[in-house]
Amino acid sequence: MPADETRQTPARLSPEQLFLLAGLAALGALATNIILPAFPDMAADLGTSVLDLSATLSSFFVAFAVGQLFVGPLSDRFGRKWLVLSGLAIFVAGSAICALATTLPQLIGGRVVQALGVCATSVLSRAIARDLFDGEALARTLALIMVAMAAAPGFSPLLGGALNSGLGWQSSFGFVAVLAVVLAIHYHARLGETHAADRRAAFSVAAILRTYGGLLADRRFITPALAVSLVIGALYAFFAMAPAILMTGFHFSPWGLGIFFASTVFVVFGAGWLAPRVARRWGAVRAARAGIGIALLGGVAILLGRQEIVFFSAALTVFLLGMGMINPLGTAIALQPFGRQAGAASALLGFLQMGCAAVAISAGAALDAPAYTLFGIILTASLTLAFLAFLALR
């Protein structure tokens, strides 16, 4: 079958297709987490501070959020393939700008270009899954993708630390650029277009506004989407604050930071394995609500508990277990009713997620308090709002 023809719906994802969708979904998080251990070296080379480097994260998330709003409707009208490939090409260009940057503004500019490219792969990985599956199969597929993609942001600080030590911080941007090229080649050869021509939606500014307005007004979408976004925003707040909490507060080395992140992967693995099984027994809504409750328990423990590494690790594990349940289940619940508008629904979901991440990170930078305390406040507030939002969903 030629690469530009629409693929037939498979019975299940092959391991290669699973790796491909997980790679597309995880590339943005990988490009963010892989540079965290290099923040001290980057700050020294660019003549800035580690705190100022948080602008490379917040600017990335803002560009990522806004870009998705355009990618989703375009893919619903014209298909997924050319947007995925174009996004990967833009991401490679942004990575090159970052690697060659000699000032903080240049680095921020490169990160914005990276975000405008990689937002397409993130939003369309979910839309492609919705193209191919629905119901329990969609929840199972999303859970498998989330489990597989957890390895990228989890292990990437360890990889980033090794690259930084051996080749300098610029090599991390070269690595993600090469990975983007590999993903583009495999996507073109192995998956291609999944959005059939007879399912494509009209494209106009008025149609886009109507679509987004309808989604925002539809409780079937906005309730689970907002809950998932608040949880993911809290997760990205941890990514942004981890160097201050672990390296400054608990005196972790760059290698120690990488090992800590790598250990969290197994928690997300377990949660992803558990989520569809609990959903099969309790129903997706009740299982997702339980996931938020578990995550909230971890957030409250961090806020009110002892500020020591063992207690922090245990409380963070509880949060990650709940997060790993709500993320795939809430995403499946939000996308399930909107097969014809899967691109727009996934884009709006991504916008909400990155918007919540940007707000959480900006709040952490603006408030005058120790990083550990700030993270506990942000985590508990976000998860409380997420739990209240999900209570409205039957």
Rank of each mutant, 00 (worst) to 15 (best):
Met323Ile: 02
Ile108Arg: 07
Ile208Lys: 02
Val84Thr: 11
Leu13Glu: 05
Ile333Cys: 07
Trp255Asp: 14
Met149Arg: 03
Gly110Lys: 00
Gln170Glu: 13
Ala225Gln: 07
Ala63Asp: 02
Phe173Asn: 02
Arg111Ala: 10
Phe39Ser: 09
Leu100Pro: 02
Gly355Ile: 07
Pro243Val: 14
Ala392Gly: 05
Leu30Pro: 08
Pro2Thr: 07
Ala143Gly: 13
Ala366Ile: 10
Ala342His: 01
Phe221Thr: 04
Gly343Leu: 06
Leu329Ile: 07
Ala120Thr: 10
Pro157Asp: 08
Gly166Met: 06
Leu385Ala: 15
Thr9Cys: 01
Ser122His: 00
Phe266Asn: 09
Ala207Asn: 04
Pro224Tyr: 10
Ala244Asp: 13
Ala89Gln: 03
Phe250Trp: 14
Phe203Gln: 04
Gln114His: 08
Ser346Phe: 01
Tyr212Cys: 08
Thr32Lys: 03
Gly161Trp: 00
Ala162Thr: 13
Ser382Ala: 15
Ala358Arg: 03
Thr248Met: 13
Ala31Met: 04
Pro157Trp: 01
Gly166His: 11
Gln106Thr: 15
Phe64Val: 00
Met247His: 12
Cys119Ala: 09
Gln68Val: 04
Leu74Tyr: 06
Trp169Arg: 05
Leu257Thr: 11
Ile378Pro: 04
Pro254Tyr: 04
Ile333Val: 12
Gly364Cys: 10
Pro254Glu: 14
Ser346Met: 05
Thr380Phe: 07
Phe173Gly: 02
Leu183Phe: 12
Cys98Lys: 01
Phe173Cys: 07
Thr32Gln: 12
Pro37Phe: 05
Ile245Gln: 08
Met42His: 07
Gly270Lys: 02
Gly293Asn: 08
Ala177Phe: 02
Cys98Ile: 08
Leu297Asp: 03
Val267Arg: 10
Ser122Arg: 01
Ile292Leu: 15
Leu85Cys: 07
Arg286Thr: 08
Ala345Pro: 05
Phe269Tyr: 14
Ala360Gln: 03
Leu36Glu: 14
Ile302Trp: 01
Ala31His: 03
Ser171Trp: 01
Thr264Tyr: 15
Leu124Ser: 03
Ala150Lys: 05
Arg394Ala: 14
Gly305Asn: 09
Ala206Thr: 12
Val118Asp: 06
Arg199Thr: 12
Leu21Ala: 10
Arg80Phe: 02
Thr9Lys: 12
Leu107Ile: 14
Leu83Val: 03
Gly249Gln: 11
Asp4Phe: 04
Asp368Glu: 14
Gly23Tyr: 03
Ile292Asp: 05
Ile259Tyr: 09
Gly233Cys: 08
Val50Asn: 07
Ser229Glu: 09
Leu215Thr: 06
Asp134Val: 02
Ala358Leu: 01
Phe375Lys: 09
Ile97Gly: 05
Gly343Cys: 04
Met241Asp: 13
Gly166Ile: 01
Leu138Met: 14
Phe351Gln: 00
Arg289His: 11
Val265Phe: 15
Leu21Gln: 05
Leu88Met: 03
Thr48Asn: 09
Val92Trp: 00
